[in-house]
Design a protein around this nucleic acid. Sequence first.
DNA 1: CCATCTTCCTTCGAAATCGAAGTTATGGCG
DNA 2: CGCCATAACTTCGATTTCGAAGGAAGATGG
Lengths: 372, 372
Amino acid sequence: MRGAQGDLLRLVAAGHAESRAELARLSGLAASSVSLRVEELIGSGLLVEEGAGTSRGGRRPRRLRLSPSAGLLAVADLGAHHARLGLLDLSGTPLVVEERPCEIADGPEATIDWMAAAFEDLLAAHGPPGVPLRGVGTGIPGPVDPATGRVVAPSRMPGWNNFPVAERLGAHFDLPVLVENDANLMAAGEARAWPKCETLMVLKTGSGIGCGVIVNGALHRGRGAAGDISHVRVRSDSSVTCSCGHDDCLEAYASGAALMSVLNEQGIEVRRPADVVALVEDGVPEATALVRNAGRLIGEVLTVLVNFINPDAIVVGGSLSPAEPLIASIRAAVYERCLPLATRDLEISTTRSGPDAALLGAGSLLLDAVLA
Amino acid sequence: MRGAQGDLLRLVAAGHAESRAELARLSGLAASSVSLRVEELIGSGLLVEEGAGTSRGGRRPRRLRLSPSAGLLAVADLGAHHARLGLLDLSGTPLVVEERPCEIADGPEATIDWMAAAFEDLLAAHGPPGVPLRGVGTGIPGPVDPATGRVVAPSRMPGWNNFPVAERLGAHFDLPVLVENDANLMAAGEARAWPKCETLMVLKTGSGIGCGVIVNGALHRGRGAAGDISHVRVRSDSSVTCSCGHDDCLEAYASGAALMSVLNEQGIEVRRPADVVALVEDGVPEATALVRNAGRLIGEVLTVLVNFINPDAIVVGGSLSPAEPLIASIRAAVYERCLPLATRDLEISTTRSGPDAALLGAGSLLLDAVLA
DNA sequence: CCATCTTCCTTCGAAATCGAAGTTATGGCG
DNA sequence: CGCCATAACTTCGATTTCGAAGGAAGATGG
């Protein structure tokens, strides 16, 4: 989709504009030019007119939407032991989302080929006939070089180091391919749910601790590892050596994996981060204390970052995030230690996009590639 | 300067483009359109053609420069006891820079009116006749709300809280006015000297510790306090209460003011941060040890931020920056503790723009306002 | 020193975009 | 109910921008 038409489509797809008038305001084009292009887009079946919107004091706008038959995106979010997979229409609305078991330790070739097959599967079962697939994307639980689409020095993905994921995935589909870190995808997904926030920190709390950063409305990738907070040194009495080789990393104290190992040592059996949340909800004091301490440690780290980048909101997601004491103690630490200027109007809350945040984020980022 | 012409002027003024061909590449306009607009700009006296550039394998480009008579910018950088003042042409080249004594504690009205008089002074003495003043700007050693141009909750500027600096300065000159935090200006100035770096952290070490952040080539302001690192809690044995009310802030250990007060207690008299640098250069062990410790503490804080935003470079400026051990121990801490992915290709070095960095930054930011 | 390749820049008709002046639809208000 | 203010589009001639072709100037390499 070239030039001006692509711009207009993207504005509609991203949910920023719903009428010709809004398109004119946001795109900077003249209203007359917008009308012309929109007419063409409707003619070629990519946009549809759908009833009237609400008046803002004058004539009601004619609502524009992406045609459901404009195309589909196939997206995935890889975890250690399972993957979420979904089909989205071009405006990012999920047609279907499934969770399937999948061992990332099986290595990149097997996993990616499995994913490609799963996509075909979903398409056959849920793809409306005649609607073309327009892009594929996946989240990876490790650092990804955005330029090459390769995994770089992942800590929990044996055999994946430097593997060209985008290339392998692209071999199955001759389409735009997106490969991105999972926390970054989550951040991109949340960003759509926080349209008024220009700067956003999105925390993914699960087995590990990840963080995605939105600066000025766009995902900040840095050199590919931006957002890492798991290897920050925390103030602590004891001394634990992290897998990265340094002492007292946040991850060694506050990650789901760390919490689970402490609980298991205490004879309380847990297998997944969600089990910890369940324990907390059941009022098991050992679990609650641990989670509260984790929140405090995370909050103290966030303190530095909040003073530094002044986000408009901090969003906490991931499988540990439903545990109330976690977010409560994060809040407490941040509000206590940060500068008033930085915490005034700072919102700290749980995910608005829910468990599909990463899939939605993949859709959002893919859209730019598809309509470029 | 409206529309396309403004874009082209800005590209030339900012030093990004030097020929019609470069303008075409960077602006996205067609080469033919660029030629047309450039001809107009030359006709109206804003651009001049100046000899030929170096060939890149074909015909040599005809170099374009902003006409020296296109306009002037008057810029200042306020410190606690003195101000740097300068006149720049629109391409940011200084015509004259002076340092004059000036007590910020005299309050905002007196200081700003004094500044306006000083600008008139400089214009009369060094402004080429017939060249119009096109904008004024100043740096402030405290937080500034970018939207309103007001000072917000400064710690060392009695009487300035919430004062509308931009408004008062604008009353003297009916022109675009820029009011910005001094570390932010320094960052904007350095950014021009590091054209290949998209993400930059610029540290201002003086009586206090400031930091400006460039993300994606643009100054990141956040809510007006972005870049603050002075009130981060540091790991420490003793316990010192900072002016902000919390314990063990970085500023209370590693700022020039903190170093000076320790030295003075030890009977070594110092009055300005530069005196500390002199002591270090003279090999006074007490001073060297202090500076080294300050560098380590700063470096440990930077560690967190480097992992988080993955800058391309960290630039250390300010009156303490010439002290070799400072930057050496910052380097040591950062390289030791950060993730390899974040430090690979990370450059940590002293200012490229020198003492005028803030003035150059003011020019750079003002340009956008003037040629908007 | 001559052919060839690059790069820079201009020319000119075609195409896209603008913007001022309409047209259509709606809410509010006496 | 009729008038007015407001907003959402349309129409259409004027303007800007594009892009393909070509000329100008210099590098390269025999």
